[in-house]
Nucleic acid binder design. Structure first.
Length: 954
RNA sequence: GCCGAAGUGGCGGAACUGGUAGACGCGCUGGACUCAAAAUCCAGUAACAGCAAUGUUGUAGGGGUUCGAUUCCCCUCUUCGGUACCA
């Protein structure tokens, strides 16, 4: 034992080992990916991060670790694996930061990227960093601008279901006008070929705008005064901006839009061809929101005008007792009668003063006004009053509806409030559970529809509407065209100039990228114009033309970045055709659900557009999508009570807190807490003094503990002041962020990776459990000690026993299967089991340990690389093959069957694995304990489940 | 409100097509080593009853199918995620 003191055991020193192998991998370009490989390709993509100022916390790398494990696994299996990483570096936070601090976004972004890069490198990822992209890099956004130009120069042909060049559309206009064209377009008047030829250049440009896939239009936008910009619908939560929670109001502005609605049908249908989770597909299809219905015209009594509505329930037309227009509907001013003028104006004023926020928070409140006009029911000639109301939306359908109170809850509420007639038209008595909205029941009070079931009635009347020329069948989508303009600085400038008539023109490829100019003042102008508009030398060109001053939104760069990774240095194309041909699409995409409807839809749209133009070769960009859950934190807080008499403060230890008194809750930085993560975390005396340094306002406060009330100085040394734990997200404001760097420094990157996987299923959200990481740490040490003893590696060349081979191959089998179904947590469990089993056998045989090492390599790249080299290998383990299971070692010779009587286990018996069912039956009936139980009688049935169990039914 | 997912020990979670529920890890209890602590190792750990063998109850609650249900079907409750006047 004396000797042992002087002969230190060889330990696994993670920090030394990690830096050594990181350097080795870099010098030997282990993770360099080739575009000219003869191997089969596999593309594993992570959703690239926005490099925020606060760096990574332990939640961010979860998905990256999973994708890294999978990439390494595929690479070891012999695939050429593209596993790149980059940065989504344009966006609001950097700009907000710039406004506050004056530091230019490009500087803070570069700094943040470096920090992210460092943190990522710490975790041993196998990214090919030579392919890194950043969306704010001009060599990258050159192609973002280029794609926008392509969108501008294309229109969508519904008949061919394809984007086509705008020149072809002009040729069609020249020869036949716009009458016979089935294009995705904004509303506009019909015109003939000769009319087209006589239009001015300006008018032609305006008309073409209605067809372009990137177009300008005046629209109500979500204007956020506090942020000084318009926001997309998905940047608003509950009527306030998602970032900052500022109020949002509606404001008309001329904006760029992308005609994503042209692709709605394909975006919906092609969901069937991709491997996304069911809930993800449902989220997307709800967002697209396809509905089949009918366009229907109502004569307006005494105006010689027609009112166009959209309905999915044409069958209910005999129950239509009023019409409703959206307040912004263009006919409102034209049809309002003098008598109703006052009340309509009052209502319109009311609507205008209401922000989006008010509308949403009082969604159930019924408001509206009567225009004085009447529409004529085309089927029975009845006069129907026309109302306006907030609950009808301008942007959906035609912005006008026929209201059928008997069959629609909203119309019903409206009819009740304003005392309008309710005509019963569907008898639902035979469908007891059916709600008002269900398409079930039998028609009544509906003339020729009477007696029909609802679906039959819809069918019949739709046919009649078309035959009578009253309208036609129509498909509608909830999805709107994407607003593509931001009145912001830190984004891609539009490659657009306006001529003297204000007609937009695109820049030629030679002038791309249009570099975002330097600017000192990033604040938006008061009039809502973008910061770039202040830079007149940039805006105004020598020929009198002006530049577009808005910038592109956050989703621009992220809509196509995965293509750039294929060929990031290319200066002539977004990526070379041969590179795209080789990599094609993403085989596995890993990221959070929060991008379900935003990023994923936009990028699928762009990819389809590029597919139409022949730049990409698959209709969908992502074959398979895996959504990782979030890692939650635990926040710690203390209860503070203010004494009524003298205004002094007293902190109350959690167990002493009385339910009825009022408390202020203050969050405590988790690093001051003792027993963090246990059921009874507390502050000790030094923790309290740290906390008071952090919140000096309460320096004089008393602390109430079991031992009594004390000031912080008087506290007994052993006192425990208990705090309150809550599951919460990790956030700076709750002081509960856990930095991966600290965990890596303490436990090593391998342990960190294994632990994040071990926490639970990847797709599930789960709390970071600081304490149980020790278990994984123990595994790493035990695994190490399988290979290393005292002075070094101690593997023997001895032949492995059948038992040992079985343990190994069981592990290979389980881990391979679990990897294929992305069950990483059970992989780690299996490694622990196997390592314990081998430990129990004192197995140190190379024949077993070497394949086991390769099996673990994707999970623990540093540890396995170190051991691999200690065993005498000179090449990286990550270039070695992944072990293959040999089932011959797993064959069971004897199987222990549980023997049950009426489902209850009564004993066991060992039978040969290959025994057939009749033989098993016969052997079982002869068992002593079975005979005792049967006691002479014969069982009704013997159920034999080969390999599993035998059950006798008496 | 609607759509979706999920509810298993003190905790995170296993159980792949119905077949001995609670693998693996944390925590806890006891023991070994130690002057002592840490570390490490060994044993135990769903609940109830029992010295024990063992028995009974148990996968949110209720019902059903089955020889057998955490798994399949119906109803109810709870939690989380998405969405919100879409005609």
């Amino acid at each position: 034992s004396y000797l042992l003191y002087f002969c230190p055991l060889m330990e696994f020193k993670s920090s030394e080992v990690e830096s050594k192998w990181r350097l080795f991998w870099e010098q030997n370009q282990i993770y360099k990916v080739s575009n000219n490989s003869s191997k089969q390709k596999y593309y594993v993509l992570d959703m690239f991060p926005y490099p925020s100022g606060s760096g990574l916390h332990v939640g961010h790398p979860l998905g990256y670790i999973a994708s890294d494990i999978f990439s390494r696994y595929k690479r070891m299996q012999g695939f050429e694996v593209l596993h790149p990483m980059g940065f989504d570096s344009f966006g609001l936070p950097a700009e907000q930061y710039a406004i506050q601090t004056g530091i230019h976004p490009s500087l803070s972004t570069a700094r943040n990227i470096n920090r992210y890069r460092e943190q990522l490198d710490n975790l041993g990822f196998s990214f090919d960093w030579s392919r890194q992209v950043s969306t704010s890099d001009p060599s990258f956004y050159k192609w973002t601008q280029w794609i926008f130009i392509q969108l501008f120069h294309h229109w969508y042909d519904q008949d061919r279901s394809q984007a086509r060049p705008i020149d072809e559309l002009i040729r069609i206009f020249d020869t036949q006008g716009n009458a016979g064209i089935n294009a995705a377009h904004s509303p506009g008047p019909p015109f003939t070929a000769s009319a087209w030829q006589n239009f001015s250049e300006k008018s032609k440009s305006d008309i073409l705008m209605n067809y372009r896939l990137a177009y300008r239009k005046e629209a109500f936008v979500n204007w956020c005064e506090a942020l000084g910009t318009v926001l997309a619908n998905d940047e608003i939560k509950d009527g306030v901006s998602e970032r900052g929670g500022h109020p949002v109001e509606r404001k008309p502005m001329t904006q760029w839009f992308l005609r994503i609605t042209a692709y709605a049908e394909r975006l919906l249908n092609d969901l069937n061809t991709v491997d996304f989770s069911e809930s993800m597909k449902i989220m997307q299809s709800n967002w697209i929101g396809r509905s089949t219905g009918a366009q229907l015209f109502f004569e307006l009594h005494g105006f010689g005008k027609k009112l166009e509505i959209y309905t999915t329930r044409a069958d209910t037309i005999f129950g239509a007792s009023f019409m409703v227009l959206a307040p912004e509907h263009e006919l409102v001013s034209k049809i309002t009668t003098p008598a109703q003028q006052a009340s309509i104006s009052t209502y319109l004023q009311f609507v205008n003063t209401r922000s989006e926020r008010d509308r949403m928070s009082e969604a159930k409140e019924v408001t509206g006004a009567f225009t004085g006009a009447f529409a004529i029911n085309p089927f029975n000639g009845k006069k129907i009053p026309v109302w306006i109301a907030e609950y009808v939306l301008k942007d959906y359908g035609t912005g006008a509806i026929m209201a059928v109170p008997a069959d629609d809850a909203r119309d019903m509420a409206f009819a009740k409030k304003f005392d309008l007639p309710i005509i019963d038209i569907i008898d639902k008595s035979m469908y007891p559970g059916a709600t008002i909205e269900d398409k079930l029941g039998r028609m009544i009070n509906s003339e020729f529809l009477n007696g029909l079931e609802v679906p039959e009635a819809i069918e019949l009347i739709s046919g009649k509407i078309e035959a009578m020329g009253l309208g036609k069948k129509q498909i509608n989508f909830k999805m709107r065209d994407a607003n593509y303009s931001r009145q912001r600085y830190w984004g891609e400038p539009f490659p657009i100039v306006y001529n003297l008539d204000g007609v937009p023109q695109t820049l030629p490829l030679e002038e791309l990228p249009l570099i975002l100019p330097e600017l000192d003042d990033f604040k938006p102008s008061a009039n809502g114009k973008a910061p770039l508009s202040k830079l007149s030398s940039w805006v105004n060109l020598s020929n009198g033309f002006t530049r577009e001053t808005d910038t592109m939104p956050g989703f621009a760069g992220s809509s196509w970045y995965f293509l750039r990774y294929m060929d990031p240095g290319n200066e002539r194309e977004l990526a070379s055709p041969s590179a795209i041909e080789y990599w094609k699409d993403v085989d596995l995409y890993v990221g959070g659900t929060e991008h379900a409807v935003g990023h994923l839809l936009y990028s699928r749209f762009w990819h389809k557009f590029l597919y139409d133009l022949g730049y990409t070769f698959t209709p969908e960009p992502y074959k398979r999508l895996l959504n990782q859950g979030k890692i939650q934190g635990i926040s710690e807080s203390v209860f503070l009570q203010k004494e009524k008499e003298n205004g002094s403060y007293i902190f109350v230890s959690k167990p002493l807190k009385q339910e009825d008194s009022e408390f202020i809750t203050l969050h405590v930085p988790i690093e001051y807490i003792k027993d963090y993560g246990s059921t009874m975390p507390y502050l000790d005396k030094s923790g309290i003094s740290q906390f008071l340094d952090f919140m000096p306002d309460y320096r004089e406060a008393l602390f109430r503990t079991e031992q009594g009330d004390f000031t912080s100085k008087e506290l007994p040394a052993d006192s425990k002041f208990y705090t309150h734990s809550e599951l919460a997200k990790m956030s700076k404001s709750l002081y509960n962020v856990i930095n991966p760097d600290a965990v890596v420094a303490e436990y090593g990157a391998d342990c960190f990776r294994l632990f994040e996987m071990f926490l639970g299923p990847l797709e599930q959200s789960k709390p970071w459990d600081t304490r149980s990481i020790d278990g994984v740490g123990k595994f790493v040490r035990r695994f190490w000690s399988l290979f290393v003893q005292d002075s070094g590696i101690h593997c023997s060349a001895e032949q492995a026993s059948a038992e040992e081979l079985k343990i190994l191959h069981k592990c290979i089998k389980r881990v391979t299967e679990d990897l294929e179904r992305f069950s990483f947590n059970t992989c780690v469990s299996q490694f622990m089991i196997t390592s314990n089993e081998l430990k129990g056998l004192s197995c140190n045989k190379k024949e077993i340990l070497e394949p086991l090492l390769r099996l673990l390599a994707p999970f623990a790249p540093f540890l396995t690389e170190e051991l691999w080299h200690m065993m005498g290998n000179h090449q990286s383990i990550h270039l070695a093959g992944f072990p293959v299971v040999d089932n011959q070692y797993l064959i069971e010779r004897i199987i222990t069957y549980p023997i049950c009587i009426n489902g209850k286990k009564r004993g066991t018996a060992d039978y040969p694995a290959d025994a057939d069912v009749p033989a098993l039956e016969a052997l079982t009936l002869n068992l002593d304990f079975v005979q005792k139980w049967l006691d002479g009688s014969v069982p009704k049935k013997v159920v034999v489940v080969p390999g599993k169990m035998i059950n006798l039914v008496l």
